[in-house]
Amino acid sequence: MSDWKKIAPLEDIPRLGSRVVEIEDGSIAVFRTGDDQVFAVRDACPHKNGPLSQGIVAGHTVTCPLHNWKIDLESGEALDPDEGCTNTYVAKVEEGMVYLQL
């Protein structure tokens, strides 16, 4: 079932940035926020599938690069007034290494 998968050292993800992880049926965007927390969501905006990994990160949100929807990284939900949700994945950082539960 779902296992912890080792992804990369935390420093490989830029702060307030992201990296993409390819999985069988698409991509996951792994974000590192200003407070060094890590979040993972499906790399597709609930609006028109924009690549969220390419957006600007601020607080615990990312702004989609295509039409500026804001997505909450914890829940995957679009912030008011937009409506929609993208899948989230559980992520953790241990001894400087990022893991995803897949």
Partner: peptide
């Protein structure tokens, strides 16, 4: 380079 390369799942 990180901007352009996807990460690989290692284990």
């Amino acid at each position: 380079a990180h901007e352009f390369e996807p990460l690989k799942i290692s284990a």
